[in-house]
Amino acid sequence: MVKSNSSGDRMVKIVSYTVVTVLMLSCLLPLIHTLALSLSDKSAAASGMVTLWPVRPSNSAYKAILGDKQFFLSFKNSIVRILLGGALNIFFTVTMAFPLSRSKRLFPQRNIYMWFLIFTMLFSGGIIPMYLLIYRLKLMDSIWALVLPSAVPVYNVILLMNYFRGVPRELDEAARLDGAGPLRTMLQVFVPVSMPCIATITLFSIVGHWNAFFDGAIYINTQAKVPLQTYIQQLVVDMRASSVMSKEELAILAEISGKSFNAAKVIVTMLPVLLVYPFLQKYFVHGIVLGSVKG
Protein backbone atom coordinates (compact mmCIF):
# COMPACT_ATOMS: atom_id res chain seq x y z
CA MET A 1 0.00 0.00 0.00
CA VAL A 2 1.40 3.36 -0.94
CA LYS A 3 1.32 5.75 1.99
CA SER A 4 0.74 9.34 1.13
CA ASN A 5 0.54 11.75 3.99
CA SER A 6 -0.79 14.89 2.41
CA SER A 7 -2.90 17.11 4.63
CA GLY A 8 -5.99 16.25 2.58
CA ASP A 9 -5.58 12.57 3.35
CA ARG A 10 -5.13 13.32 7.02
CA MET A 11 -8.29 15.41 6.87
CA VAL A 12 -10.25 12.47 5.43
CA LYS A 13 -8.99 10.32 8.28
CA ILE A 14 -9.84 12.88 10.96
CA VAL A 15 -13.34 13.49 9.61
CA SER A 16 -14.00 9.74 9.29
CA TYR A 17 -12.87 8.97 12.82
CA THR A 18 -14.90 11.87 14.18
CA VAL A 19 -18.13 11.02 12.35
CA VAL A 20 -17.86 7.33 13.19
CA THR A 21 -17.17 8.10 16.83
CA VAL A 22 -20.04 10.58 17.09
CA LEU A 23 -22.44 8.06 15.55
CA MET A 24 -21.24 5.37 17.94
CA LEU A 25 -21.69 7.64 20.95
CA SER A 26 -25.15 8.62 19.77
CA CYS A 27 -26.11 4.95 19.98
CA LEU A 28 -24.60 4.53 23.41
CA LEU A 29 -25.60 7.71 25.23
CA PRO A 30 -29.39 7.17 25.46
CA LEU A 31 -28.73 3.75 26.98
CA ILE A 32 -26.15 5.08 29.44
CA HIS A 33 -28.53 7.88 30.36
CA THR A 34 -31.27 5.37 31.10
CA LEU A 35 -28.89 3.28 33.19
CA ALA A 36 -27.85 6.38 35.12
CA LEU A 37 -31.51 7.29 35.62
CA SER A 38 -32.28 3.86 37.00
CA LEU A 39 -29.43 4.10 39.50
CA SER A 40 -30.31 7.60 40.66
CA ASP A 41 -32.30 8.75 43.61
CA LYS A 42 -36.00 9.10 42.79
CA SER A 43 -36.23 12.84 43.29
CA ALA A 44 -33.01 13.54 41.39
CA ALA A 45 -34.32 11.53 38.44
CA ALA A 46 -37.68 13.28 38.50
CA SER A 47 -36.08 16.72 38.47
CA GLY A 48 -34.16 15.98 35.26
CA MET A 49 -30.75 16.43 36.90
CA VAL A 50 -29.42 13.08 35.69
CA THR A 51 -27.41 13.03 32.46
CA LEU A 52 -24.84 10.27 32.10
CA TRP A 53 -23.91 9.55 35.68
CA PRO A 54 -26.18 8.60 38.58
CA VAL A 55 -27.07 11.53 40.81
CA ARG A 56 -27.29 10.55 44.48
CA PRO A 57 -26.79 6.87 43.58
CA SER A 58 -29.41 4.52 44.88
CA ASN A 59 -30.53 1.01 44.13
CA SER A 60 -34.07 1.66 45.37
CA ALA A 61 -35.50 1.41 41.84
CA TYR A 62 -34.14 -2.12 41.47
CA LYS A 63 -35.34 -3.00 44.94
CA ALA A 64 -38.76 -1.74 43.93
CA ILE A 65 -38.73 -4.13 40.94
CA LEU A 66 -38.17 -7.02 43.34
CA GLY A 67 -41.43 -6.03 44.97
CA ASP A 68 -43.29 -5.70 41.66
CA LYS A 69 -45.15 -8.98 41.36
CA GLN A 70 -46.51 -8.18 37.89
CA PHE A 71 -42.99 -7.63 36.57
CA PHE A 72 -41.94 -11.12 37.63
CA LEU A 73 -45.11 -12.71 36.29
CA SER A 74 -44.59 -10.98 32.95
CA PHE A 75 -40.93 -11.90 32.89
CA LYS A 76 -41.87 -15.54 33.40
CA ASN A 77 -44.55 -15.30 30.67
CA SER A 78 -41.97 -13.97 28.26
CA ILE A 79 -39.52 -16.77 29.10
CA VAL A 80 -42.26 -19.34 28.45
CA ARG A 81 -43.03 -17.57 25.22
CA ILE A 82 -39.47 -17.57 23.88
CA LEU A 83 -39.00 -21.23 24.80
CA LEU A 84 -42.23 -22.39 23.22
CA GLY A 85 -42.16 -19.95 20.31
CA GLY A 86 -38.48 -20.53 19.66
CA ALA A 87 -38.90 -24.32 19.70
CA LEU A 88 -41.82 -24.13 17.26
CA ASN A 89 -39.83 -21.83 14.99
CA ILE A 90 -36.81 -24.15 14.85
CA PHE A 91 -38.98 -27.20 14.33
CA PHE A 92 -40.88 -25.77 11.39
CA THR A 93 -37.87 -24.04 9.86
CA VAL A 94 -35.83 -27.24 9.75
CA THR A 95 -38.59 -29.63 8.76
CA MET A 96 -39.75 -27.39 5.91
CA ALA A 97 -36.38 -26.13 4.71
CA PHE A 98 -35.03 -29.65 4.26
CA PRO A 99 -37.61 -31.04 1.80
CA LEU A 100 -37.62 -27.73 -0.07
CA SER A 101 -33.86 -27.90 -0.50
CA ARG A 102 -34.16 -31.21 -2.38
CA SER A 103 -34.16 -31.27 -6.14
CA LYS A 104 -37.36 -31.59 -8.12
CA ARG A 105 -36.32 -35.12 -9.06
CA LEU A 106 -36.25 -36.24 -5.43
CA PHE A 107 -39.28 -34.18 -4.38
CA PRO A 108 -41.55 -33.56 -7.39
CA GLN A 109 -44.12 -31.49 -5.47
CA ARG A 110 -41.45 -29.07 -4.25
CA ASN A 111 -42.43 -26.14 -6.46
CA ILE A 112 -46.09 -26.29 -5.47
CA TYR A 113 -45.11 -25.90 -1.82
CA MET A 114 -42.64 -23.19 -2.71
CA TRP A 115 -45.30 -21.12 -4.46
CA PHE A 116 -47.59 -21.62 -1.51
CA LEU A 117 -44.95 -20.22 0.85
CA ILE A 118 -44.28 -17.25 -1.40
CA PHE A 119 -48.00 -16.59 -1.62
CA THR A 120 -48.30 -16.44 2.17
CA MET A 121 -45.37 -14.01 2.25
CA LEU A 122 -46.94 -11.66 -0.26
CA PHE A 123 -50.49 -11.52 1.04
CA SER A 124 -51.70 -10.91 4.53
CA GLY A 125 -55.18 -10.28 5.88
CA GLY A 126 -54.02 -7.54 8.21
CA ILE A 127 -54.74 -7.14 11.89
CA ILE A 128 -58.52 -7.14 11.92
CA PRO A 129 -59.21 -10.47 10.14
CA MET A 130 -56.36 -11.91 12.24
CA TYR A 131 -57.92 -10.66 15.43
CA LEU A 132 -61.29 -12.09 14.46
CA LEU A 133 -59.65 -15.43 13.60
CA ILE A 134 -57.89 -15.68 16.97
CA TYR A 135 -61.20 -14.84 18.58
CA ARG A 136 -63.06 -17.52 16.61
CA LEU A 137 -60.40 -20.14 17.36
CA LYS A 138 -60.90 -19.36 21.06
CA LEU A 139 -57.21 -18.62 21.43
CA MET A 140 -57.84 -15.32 23.19
CA ASP A 141 -55.96 -14.99 26.44
CA SER A 142 -53.77 -17.98 25.66
CA ILE A 143 -50.05 -18.28 25.04
CA TRP A 144 -50.91 -20.08 21.78
CA ALA A 145 -52.24 -16.82 20.35
CA LEU A 146 -48.70 -15.47 20.72
CA VAL A 147 -46.74 -18.39 19.27
CA LEU A 148 -48.95 -20.14 16.70
CA PRO A 149 -49.55 -17.34 14.16
CA SER A 150 -45.80 -16.85 13.78
CA ALA A 151 -44.85 -20.51 14.26
CA VAL A 152 -43.78 -20.91 10.61
CA PRO A 153 -41.24 -18.20 9.82
CA VAL A 154 -41.39 -18.39 6.03
CA TYR A 155 -38.48 -16.05 5.43
CA ASN A 156 -36.24 -18.16 7.68
CA VAL A 157 -37.39 -21.32 5.92
CA ILE A 158 -36.14 -19.85 2.65
CA LEU A 159 -32.86 -18.73 4.25
CA LEU A 160 -32.17 -22.18 5.66
CA MET A 161 -33.29 -23.84 2.42
CA ASN A 162 -30.65 -21.81 0.57
CA TYR A 163 -28.09 -22.78 3.17
CA PHE A 164 -28.98 -26.48 2.87
CA ARG A 165 -28.53 -26.21 -0.88
CA GLY A 166 -24.95 -25.13 -0.30
CA VAL A 167 -24.18 -28.31 1.64
CA PRO A 168 -21.68 -30.36 -0.44
CA ARG A 169 -23.38 -33.08 -2.47
CA GLU A 170 -20.77 -35.61 -1.38
CA LEU A 171 -22.11 -35.54 2.18
CA ASP A 172 -25.60 -36.25 0.92
CA GLU A 173 -24.42 -39.06 -1.36
CA ALA A 174 -22.30 -40.62 1.37
CA ALA A 175 -25.31 -40.71 3.68
CA ARG A 176 -27.36 -42.29 0.90
CA LEU A 177 -24.77 -44.98 0.29
CA ASP A 178 -24.68 -45.71 3.99
CA GLY A 179 -28.39 -46.39 3.72
CA ALA A 180 -29.58 -43.36 5.68
CA GLY A 181 -33.18 -42.35 4.96
CA PRO A 182 -34.21 -38.73 4.48
CA LEU A 183 -34.96 -38.14 8.16
CA ARG A 184 -31.57 -39.42 9.26
CA THR A 185 -29.86 -37.46 6.50
CA MET A 186 -31.61 -34.32 7.69
CA LEU A 187 -30.89 -34.79 11.38
CA GLN A 188 -27.42 -36.28 11.22
CA VAL A 189 -25.92 -34.62 8.15
CA PHE A 190 -27.69 -31.39 7.22
CA VAL A 191 -28.56 -30.05 10.66
CA PRO A 192 -25.08 -30.49 12.16
CA VAL A 193 -23.27 -28.84 9.25
CA SER A 194 -25.78 -25.97 9.18
CA MET A 195 -25.49 -25.06 12.84
CA PRO A 196 -24.17 -21.51 12.21
CA CYS A 197 -27.21 -20.71 10.09
CA ILE A 198 -29.66 -22.43 12.44
CA ALA A 199 -28.12 -20.66 15.43
CA THR A 200 -28.50 -17.26 13.76
CA ILE A 201 -32.09 -17.89 12.78
CA THR A 202 -32.94 -19.18 16.24
CA LEU A 203 -31.43 -16.20 17.99
CA PHE A 204 -33.32 -13.88 15.66
CA SER A 205 -36.60 -15.60 16.35
CA ILE A 206 -35.98 -15.62 20.10
CA VAL A 207 -35.21 -11.90 20.07
CA GLY A 208 -38.32 -11.39 17.94
CA HIS A 209 -40.48 -13.23 20.45
CA TRP A 210 -38.91 -11.38 23.35
CA ASN A 211 -39.49 -8.00 21.71
CA ALA A 212 -43.07 -8.60 20.52
CA PHE A 213 -45.60 -6.52 22.43
CA PHE A 214 -48.58 -5.85 20.20
CA ASP A 215 -50.04 -9.37 20.07
CA GLY A 216 -49.79 -9.51 23.85
CA ALA A 217 -51.69 -6.22 24.02
CA ILE A 218 -54.59 -7.27 21.81
CA TYR A 219 -54.94 -11.02 22.45
CA ILE A 220 -54.22 -11.22 26.19
CA ASN A 221 -56.81 -9.76 28.52
CA THR A 222 -55.78 -11.26 31.85
CA GLN A 223 -53.09 -9.05 33.33
CA ALA A 224 -51.29 -12.01 34.93
CA LYS A 225 -50.73 -13.57 31.48
CA VAL A 226 -49.32 -10.47 29.80
CA PRO A 227 -45.74 -10.83 28.47
CA LEU A 228 -43.02 -8.47 29.64
CA GLN A 229 -42.82 -6.12 26.66
CA THR A 230 -46.59 -5.65 26.78
CA TYR A 231 -46.36 -4.83 30.47
CA ILE A 232 -43.59 -2.31 29.78
CA GLN A 233 -45.71 -0.96 26.94
CA GLN A 234 -48.48 -0.19 29.42
CA LEU A 235 -45.96 1.96 31.28
CA VAL A 236 -44.90 3.60 28.04
CA VAL A 237 -48.50 4.54 27.41
CA ASP A 238 -48.33 6.45 30.68
CA MET A 239 -45.10 8.05 29.49
CA ARG A 240 -46.80 8.87 26.22
CA ALA A 241 -49.33 10.87 28.16
CA SER A 242 -46.63 12.42 30.31
CA SER A 243 -44.65 13.48 27.25
CA VAL A 244 -47.24 16.20 26.69
CA MET A 245 -47.73 17.19 30.31
CA SER A 246 -46.79 20.49 31.83
CA LYS A 247 -44.26 20.71 34.63
CA GLU A 248 -46.95 21.02 37.30
CA GLU A 249 -48.78 17.92 36.09
CA LEU A 250 -45.51 16.04 35.94
CA ALA A 251 -44.62 16.97 39.49
CA ILE A 252 -47.81 15.29 40.65
CA LEU A 253 -47.15 12.24 38.47
CA ALA A 254 -43.57 11.92 39.71
CA GLU A 255 -44.94 11.30 43.18
CA ILE A 256 -46.72 8.16 41.99
CA SER A 257 -44.73 6.62 39.15
CA GLY A 258 -41.10 7.67 39.22
CA LYS A 259 -38.74 7.96 36.30
CA SER A 260 -36.00 5.94 37.92
CA PHE A 261 -38.36 3.04 38.57
CA ASN A 262 -39.46 2.96 34.93
CA ALA A 263 -35.85 3.29 33.77
CA ALA A 264 -34.88 0.31 35.91
CA LYS A 265 -37.67 -1.77 34.35
CA VAL A 266 -36.52 -0.76 30.88
CA ILE A 267 -32.95 -1.79 31.73
CA VAL A 268 -33.99 -5.18 33.11
CA THR A 269 -36.22 -5.77 30.08
CA MET A 270 -33.44 -5.20 27.58
CA LEU A 271 -30.88 -7.13 29.62
CA PRO A 272 -31.69 -10.55 28.09
CA VAL A 273 -31.27 -9.14 24.58
CA LEU A 274 -27.98 -7.53 25.53
CA LEU A 275 -26.84 -10.85 27.01
CA VAL A 276 -27.46 -12.86 23.83
CA TYR A 277 -26.31 -9.99 21.63
CA PRO A 278 -22.59 -10.97 21.53
CA PHE A 279 -23.54 -14.45 20.29
CA LEU A 280 -26.03 -12.97 17.89
CA GLN A 281 -23.50 -10.54 16.50
CA LYS A 282 -20.96 -13.29 15.94
CA TYR A 283 -23.32 -14.99 13.54
CA PHE A 284 -25.75 -12.48 12.12
CA VAL A 285 -23.44 -10.69 9.74
CA HIS A 286 -22.99 -14.05 8.10
CA GLY A 287 -26.73 -14.66 8.18
CA ILE A 288 -27.77 -11.35 6.69
CA VAL A 289 -25.19 -11.50 3.94
CA LEU A 290 -26.49 -14.94 3.18
CA GLY A 291 -30.01 -13.61 2.89
CA SER A 292 -29.64 -10.34 1.13
CA VAL A 293 -26.75 -10.40 -1.27
CA LYS A 294 -27.35 -13.82 -2.64
CA GLY A 295 -27.26 -13.39 -6.42
Binding site: H33, R240, A254, N262
Partner: peptide, 20 residues
Protein backbone atom coordinates in the same frame (compact mmCIF):
# COMPACT_ATOMS: atom_id res chain seq x y z
CA UNK B 1 -32.25 -5.55 18.43
CA UNK B 2 -34.09 -3.46 21.02
CA UNK B 3 -37.86 -3.16 20.79
CA UNK B 4 -39.73 0.06 20.16
CA UNK B 5 -41.40 -0.42 23.51
CA UNK B 6 -38.02 -0.02 25.19
CA UNK B 7 -36.74 2.66 22.86
CA UNK B 8 -40.04 4.55 22.89
CA UNK B 9 -39.85 4.58 26.67
CA UNK B 10 -36.27 5.84 26.61
CA UNK B 11 -36.87 8.58 24.04
CA UNK B 12 -40.15 9.79 25.51
CA UNK B 13 -38.52 10.10 28.87
CA UNK B 14 -35.57 12.00 27.40
CA UNK B 15 -37.81 14.33 25.39
CA UNK B 16 -40.43 15.16 28.02
CA UNK B 17 -40.55 18.66 29.47
CA UNK B 18 -38.58 17.51 32.52
CA UNK B 19 -36.28 15.27 30.48
CA UNK B 20 -32.58 15.52 29.91
Amino acid sequence: FLSWVILGGIFLSMLSIDGV
